[in-house]
Design a protein around this nucleic acid. Structure first.
Lengths: 326, 326
DNA sequence: CATATGGGGTGAAACGGTTCACTGAAGCGA
DNA sequence: TCGCTTCAGTGAACCGTTTCACCCCATATG
């Protein structure tokens, strides 16, 4: 690997007989005359010059990099989200630096702390109540996706109306005559006060449902294993707080010889593309809309032209075949 | 967003009464005595100091960033691969900058060119024969995953033994009595000479199979649409060059009321986790092994301690239920 | 004709680290 | 005691841009 040295701005300046300042301006289409601009661009192209992003970042204070800190990339839907964010950011001339907290609040903290020099941060918080967020939000424009942060003023937030989501799911289940329903939520921190749990139990009480909540990993194999235990207690329906978990339940059901929705009904949450193929009835969120909002907000916050600070996403119920009448 | 100013190395130096050089060394555990090291670390922690990666990169010439240029993140398997690479790189104290060429050689070229200041590049080339790779490889340690580059000396390569993969698949299909098989490959460039095509037609000829090759997008919806047309010609089996495409075929089959494997057999390629759930018979690659190799190679190439230059991955056939006896 | 105006360009100071060449002191064997 | 090495630490150059403050000159203005 000979690692040929790259051309610097100085060489371009020399080649054109201009100052580096002029070159810098010219390449960004600032200040200079049409003619010099062309001259500079031509020279730059000939030399194969491409600005060093680090030097640029150091001097200008902007990186063109947006951190994307995902709660758990084990979850396929979050993968889609990350991919979408990456693509959308790229369209706006930014890089998305995708990071995976893997459901672990400690890792989340470490990653968030290490993330310096990004122009902004998009986070799906694992632990929205963690105190360290305040420090982060103070140092970099922060927009959340999903749950908003407690006690921390972020630049903006794309909030999922989980209340509606849960209501939608549980009412549908109740309407189909289910009473004993198991709820599977992603393994999270020992945050004693998980909002999802509270939501579920409250709604369940309202609807007269008999729910039991358990945590579950997001990977297909691990989820299936966790699901087996749950299925053996023979709930009439399982409500999974992510489609990935639902896939695990489907797998476990198959292995146990349980038919869906004959023996057990399964309800997902997210609406990953595969859910259509699998016929999974699920609570659906507008992924594209979420991506667009998040990107618009974070970029707006980064350059100070922020308009709306809070976007609420409403879910819809996608009725497919995995929930049956009881 | 008040954007509080972050502590600099100079402030830490001042606080400890040392030179910035000493602080720099101390924080990286170099040169200094135990005692000063502790003193510096404590001070740094108190000030909440965290080195600016851009300045560090500019001065040292290393970013800690590895570019991961994916052929098409529409493909779920490639998503898994990207996620795995990101995680593995993070474990080795590097960031993986995940980029999506979206199957478009032009975008691939642009992205590869723009990628400067990265310590290394992991690429799943869309167009391995493109001439611009030479320039890239000259400037940054480049390791490929999948197809090796033509006419370009990369630092290292993780090669998929596609020959074996195709043979495995087609022999299995032939063994099950299939003759008319449709082959669906991802939409790629108009590279007139796609190796996969040549491979397939050669093997098919050897086995006396009657194959027709068509291209297909990777997204579930688009893939299903493309698949519908193919299925209407009623092949006895469809061999898909990625599991994502196979999912599309499964979807299309369902919509057309074709049973799998009753009316049509489907064979995948990659072995994405979901394929287990779907019972897709597929050619399987060791994703973890690929990730590990690629990371080891790129990091080795980046710091000059490279050992093996070429790792070949062998496929296995994962027999599940989607291919029937004809 | 003197004077504001302003476009086009320049020089040099940042930006915040790393690293090279060097120094002073301590340790050590002879 | 004298040199020689080693250890800890220093000062300053350097990395490759951006940007601030300023200058020059041509043209429009009063």
């Amino acid at each position: 690997m000979p690692q040929r040295k790259r051309a610097t701005i100085r060489e371009v300046a020399q080649a054109t007989g201009l100052s580096t300042a002029a070159v810098s301006y010219a390449l960004r289409g600032l200040q200079v005359s049409e003619e010099t601009m062309h001259r500079v661009r031509r020279a730059a192209a000939e030399l194969g010059y491409e600005a060093d992003p680090n030097a640029r970042a150091l001097a200008s204070g902007r990186t063109g990099m947006i951190g994307v800190l995902c709660g758990s990339l084990e979850d396929l839907w979050q993968q889609s989200l990350a991919v979408g964010l990456g693509r959308s950011l790229r369209e706006k001339d930014h890089y998305g630096l995708i990071l995976d907290a893997a459901g672990d609040p400690d890792r989340e903290r470490t990653l968030a702390r290490q993330l310096r020099g990004v122009d902004g941060l998009i986070v799906q918080p694992v632990d929205p109540a963690a105190p360290f967020w305040a420090e982060i939000a103070e140092n970099v424009p922060l927009v959340t996706i999903g749950d908003a942060l407690k006690e921390t003023r972020t630049a903006a937030e794309v909030v999922f109306d989980n209340h509606s989501g849960v209501t939608l799911a549980l009412e549908y289940l109740a309407g189909k005559g289910h009473r004993r329903v198991a709820v599977l939520t992603p393994t999270l921190a020992e945050t004693p006060d998980r909002p999802a749990d509270r939501l579920v139990t409250a709604e369940a009480a309202r609807l007269g449902l008999d729910v039991t909540v358990a945590t579950c990993p997001q990977g297909l194999g691990p989820a299936a294993e966790a699901a087996r235990a749950v299925l053996r207690s023979r709930p009439s329906a399982v409500f999974c707080f992510s489609d990935s978990i639902a896939y695990g339940v489907l797998k476990a059901a198959g292995e146990l010889g349980l038919s869906v929705p004959g023996d057990v009904s399964v309800m997902g949450y997210d609406d990953h593309p595969m859910s259509e193929l699998l016929g999974l009835t699920t609570v659906s969120w507008d992924l594209d809309g979420i991506v667009r909002s998040a990107v618009r907000l974070v970029l707006g916050a980064a350059d100070g032209t922020l308009r709306r600070r809070r976007v609420v996403q409403a879910p819809t119920l996608r009725e497919r075949g995995s929930v049956g009448q009881r």
